Computed example of a mutant assay.
Amino acid sequence: MMTDLFNNSDTLYQAFLARDRSYDGHMFVCVATTGIFCRLSCPARKPGKDHVRFFETAAACLEQGYRPCKKCRPLEPAGQPEPIISNLLARLEQNPDHVWSETDLAKLGLDPSTVRRLFKRHIGMTFLDLARLRRAGRGITALAQGANVIDAQLDAGYDSASGFRDAVTRLLGQPPARLKGRHLLQADWMETPVGAMLAIADRHRLHLLEFFERKALTAEIQRLQKTMNSTVSFGRSPPIDQIEKELAAYFKGESAAFHTPLARHGSPFTCKVWDALTRIPPGVTHSYAQLAQTIGQPTAMRAVARANGANQLAIIIPCHRVIGANGSLTGYAGGLWRKNWLLTHEKRYFPACNSLANSL
Rank of each mutant, 00 (worst) to 15 (best):
L247F: 14
K252L: 03
D275Y: 14
N229Q: 11
H265D: 10
L262S: 03
A257W: 09
K215E: 10
M228E: 14
K226L: 10
P261Y: 08
T260F: 01
A276G: 14
T270D: 12
S267M: 03
F234K: 02
T231W: 14
F251I: 07
P261A: 00
G266N: 05
F258N: 04
P282K: 04
S267P: 01
R236L: 15
I221N: 01
R279L: 14
E220V: 00
K215Y: 11
A257M: 12
H259E: 12
Q242H: 15
N229S: 06
T227L: 11
L277E: 10
L262D: 03
I240A: 07
W274F: 12
S267V: 01
P282L: 02
T231L: 14
S233G: 05
A219W: 14
A276S: 12
I221P: 04
G283S: 05
I243S: 01
V273Y: 10
F258M: 10
S233P: 01
R279W: 12
F251T: 00
G266K: 05
T270V: 13
L224S: 05
T278V: 15
A248W: 02
T231E: 13
A263T: 03
L262F: 09
K215Q: 08
E244R: 14
V273G: 03
G266R: 02
W274K: 01
F258Q: 04
R214Y: 00
A263H: 06
G266D: 10
L224E: 09
Y250H: 08
L217K: 05
P268I: 15
L247N: 05
Q225F: 00
P261V: 05
G283I: 12
P281M: 14
A216E: 15
A219P: 02
P239L: 06
F258G: 05
F234Q: 02
K245P: 03
F258D: 04
H265C: 05
R279N: 08
F234W: 02
D275R: 07
E220K: 08
P281E: 13
D275P: 03
R236P: 02
R279V: 10
G253A: 06
F269L: 14
L277N: 06
K226W: 07
H259P: 03
A256C: 12
H265S: 04
P282E: 06
P282F: 04
G235Y: 08
V232S: 04
A216F: 10
Y250T: 05
P238Y: 12
I221C: 10
C271R: 01
L247S: 05
D241W: 15
A219R: 11
